[in-house]
Design a binder for these strands. Structure first.
Lengths: 209, 209, 209, 209
DNA sequence: GATGAATGAGTCTTCATTCAT
DNA sequence: GATGAATGAAGACTCATTCAT
């Protein structure tokens, strides 16, 4: 096996793998301690690498968070867009969105914790980055609702902008409950029940049928 | 002049007034910079007092935030409790809650910004304080909904716990929109319209009548 | 004695005295190790104060050097200006300048070492500060020579600009010799002899009478 | 292809050429940023080679500067010695020295910048190397002057040691002016004029014939 | 109580140097 | 020899907190 073969083992250079280890380690540490509470030394230790190596890959701590954001938020938006654009009834599309968020939390709680606490809920992060990119999630949901409204699926006087805040606010708060442990479950079925309840409340309200 | 004489002047001692100036200054600075970004020096400057005087009144920076929390959150819960306990239909009670939150934001945006960003949205704060106290707001709303459910105002299979997350999540997200400026208004009427829309969506859902 | 009296004992506040101690300590440390070799910790230790206190008075290490520069260079230029403007023959005025430089070195070798090594001979310092201020010394000497030339004291075809480089270059190199110890003396008389020789060479050249 | 074959190509081995590229690159980078401001990475990039390869040729950064010094300063001294030893009148010999320095600057400003800023004007460099070697230039000029004095070309009471400081100080300051851009020219003729003026001032003084 | 000078631990950040490939 | 990822020591800088006046 030539050195070159070794260096691309698995199709990725050592440098790329190191970078990914840093991102993964930082996700865990940010989830545990928050951006401010996390020390670069913690991240390096978690990644099993030397202190200074972090700085070969990122200018500073904030840039690691920005990397997590860039690499994940984009995929998030793509999926939202895909669901929003589908032809299914709006109730089904909402169900798919809610399921996506809950599944994401269950698959990678650390990541979702960081997305919720340090990005989505962080005034500081949103301020210092492109507000537009963060708010794009709202815009996608709003467009989805507006199209449904045009098709008569939603009542005509609904303020779709505000409704997007309802949808994302409710979903985010439920995930926050999971993250904080105030609303956690162990059984898969419990999560499914939450999804059904949440969709029903969004679509028909708490009084509705 | 005895200390007592001084304390009688205007009904409050100088010490008490100083403490209040610190709390007010800290509220403004926390709103602007966040808990971590705020330096004690900034707070002292905003309050127009000397650096070290802050430490005659508070053990440390977090304690100032805790004071804001204790003094305001208590009143907040009292009002929630009062509304929740009233005999009005659940729709009206929800409307009063939503109006209360929006009005509070309009009266003191700095305070609401801190409540949202540093307390309600802060994993860190909630972790280090009594989670129960923060979550009490959810419990109050949940109890209110459960009573309405018992009275047949809400459908029987509604998960009231989850519904409280819907109500508070939606309200909090709308206020966050105000705070971030992504959903701000100038006219009083616009806020009133938001309130009506929000209540309608919560009660009847986005599809409902 | 009231606290106020104490705080201005000797006419200067504690803060001002601390600042002066830092400047004096930094001058000694810069002379010993150079700007880059000097650690802020060294300066604090030399001044007998805590590490962080340096940062209450100066933003960073470079700013201490800048303070030394500002506070001393100004006086230096004033004296040059005074001598340059006097009515004495140019030979006497040059003699006074040379004497001033040599005396300054003898009175405070540390300070002169810093002025020579870190300011006057430092490309880095000159680049990052106002070149004009540093070069003002040349301008003063040049104007002095030009006036002497107008009065017929100097030959008509002398390039006074270049002559100012001769005067300051020669003086600086002699002081550098003192600083480096390649041209040091112990007897006061030796310095006086150097002054006479230097003036004679500048005025009449190495071949002249 | 054997190593020897490779080393024969063009008369110099690849290793030697790499070393020269490093020295040339370092000269440019030192001129731009100074010894302290120059990072080894900058030098490697300028040389178009890999980071660590620098360390196959030099133990550390200072050693690169030392190499520049050794390889150039030696030739410099040789030329000074040659001129000093010639039989021409002292005025002509001084003129040749001055011309040599100015020409050197014009041919390779980067090199001269480094020689002036990092070697000749650097207390730090001189301290950490053989002061004697650096000062040899002064000794050569001093011996040249002393011989001229013995021949009656210079006045008997001239302090030749101090005169060497005059000559080298003046020359160095003029070159510094070129380097800093405070005394720069575009026309070749301007440099020639400077040389004539400088020699005249050194020989006959600023008042002299 | 009021002041703000003083303290120093905690971190970030840089970058020369090493070393496995 | 060549590469550049990895190391880690060194030191700058911040800022919450203490304390003498």
């Amino acid at each position: 096996m030539s050195p070159e073969t070794a260096s691309v083992r698995g199709g990725r250079s050592r440098s790329v793998r190191t970078r990914e280890r840093i991102v993964a380690a930082a996700t865990a540490v940010f989830a545990r301690r928050g951006l401010h509470g996390a020390r670069v030394a913690d991240i390096a230790e978690e990644a099993g690498i030397a202190y200074g190596l972090v700085y070969h890959h990122f200018r500073n701590k904030e840039e690691i968070l920005a990397a997590i954001f860039q690499e994940r938020w984009g995929r998030h938006l793509e999926y939202l867009e895909e669901v929003a654009a589908s032809a299914a009834p709006v109730r089904d599309r909402l169900a798919r969105l809610v399921h996506f968020w809950v599944e994401n939390y269950r698959n990678d709680p650390h990541l979702m914790t960081v997305m919720i606490n340090e990005i989505s809920r962080s005034y500081e992060f949103i301020e210092s980055h492109d507000v537009g990119t963060v708010m794009e999630a709202f815009a996608i949901v709003e467009r989805m609702l507006r199209r449904a409204q045009d098709l008569g699926e939603l009542r005509a006087d609904l303020d779709c902008r505000l409704a997007s805040y309802l949808v994302l606010g409710a979903a985010e708060m439920v995930l926050t409950g999971y993250v904080l442990g105030t609303l956690s479950h162990t059984a898969r079925e419990d999560y499914a029940a939450d999804e059904r309840q949440l969709v029903a409340m969004l679509v028909d309200g708490i009084c509705g049928t």
